[in-house]
Design a binder for these strands. Structure first.
Lengths: 128, 128
DNA sequence: CGGCATCCCACTGGATACTG
DNA sequence: CAGTATCCAGTGGGATGCCG
C-alpha cells in the first residue's frame, strides 16, 4: 500500500528460499521440470489438481526469480519449454530432498488436520 | 468448514513437505529451534517481524504434525520449551539447506518483486 | 497449444487487547 | 512469561471463459 511491502526478514536465508519455493505448487512444478517435464501441457497433466492459471502464475514467478527460463518455439501449434537455469539446478536438490522426505514420512504425519475431537477415524484417507 | 479441506495431491512427496513447512514462518521457526532457540520468548525475539500470535499458530501446527513437542515447566513465571522430535530432526537438514541456499543466492535473486517501473529506490529498507 | 482477463471467496496472517 | 480471543485486510488461488 504505502511504500512497498518489502519484507519479511530476508536476512534469514530460510526466508529467501521459502519465498522462492513459496506458493502452493512451486516446489512441485520445479520437481516436475527437474524430472524433464518441460512443456506446459505436460506439467498441467502432471499436476492436474492445480489450475493451469495458477501453474502459469508460478512459472512466471520462478522465471522472474531466475530459477527457470522459458523457450518459445515459433510455429503452430505453439511450442514452449521451460528449463532450469543454473540457479534452478542449484535449488533442485532441496526440492528433491523435500520429495524424499515427504515420501518417507507420509505415513508418520497427521496432515488431515486437528481432527476436532481426537480419534482420527481414518489415517488412510482416499484422497481421491 | 464442511468436511475438511483435505487436499491437494499428497501422492507427491513434495507436497507433503511443502505442507509441513508451509506458512510464512514455519521453516524459519524450525531453523531457530534447530539452533537451540527453544523458548517462545526467544523465538519471538529471533523473529521480531512475526507476530507472536502467528508464531504460536505455527508452533501448534508443527506440534500436530509431530515435528516438535512442547515441554511445560510448571512454576512462575511459566517456562516452556519446544523440542524437535525425531521427525523434526529428520526434516531439519532440509531447512538448513534452505538457509544455506538462501544465503548463498541472496544476491542473485530478484525478490523485490516485479518492480513496477524498475529503479528500486531503496535496497536497504529500514524495515521498521 | 499457450496464456491472459474476470470474478470471487476462503484463508493466512497482522494488530490489539486480555487472561493465567 | 505464555497463550488465546477478536477483528479485519490482503491475497492466494480456484473456476470460467476468451484470444493468439
Amino acid at each position: 500500500m504505502y511504500e512497498r511491502k518489502i519484507p519479511e526478514n530476508l536476512e534469514c536465508g530460510v526466508n529467501i528460499t521459502a519465498k522462492v519455493l513459496g506458493g502452493k505448487w512451486k516446489a512441485c512444478i520445479l520437481h516436475g521440470i527437474g524430472l524433464g517435464t518441460r512443456r506446459p501441457a505436460d506439467l498441467h497433466r502432471a499436476i492436474p489438481e492445480a489450475p493451469a492459471r495458477v501453474v502459469n502464475l508460478h512459472l512466471r514467478e520462478l522465471e522472474e526469480y531466475g530459477i527457470i527460463c522459458k523457450k518459445i518455439y515459433p510455429g503452430f501449434p505453439l511450442k514452449v519449454e521451460y528449463f532450469l537455469t543454473a540457479l534452478g539446478e542449484s535449488i533442485l536438490p532441496i526440492v528433491e530432498a523435500m520429495d524424499r522426505w515427504g515420501n518417507e514420512n507420509r505415513a508418520a504425519i497427521n496432515l488431515v488436520s486437528p481432527a476436532p475431537m481426537e480419534a482420527n477415524q481414518d489415517l488412510m484417507p482416499e484422497m481421491r
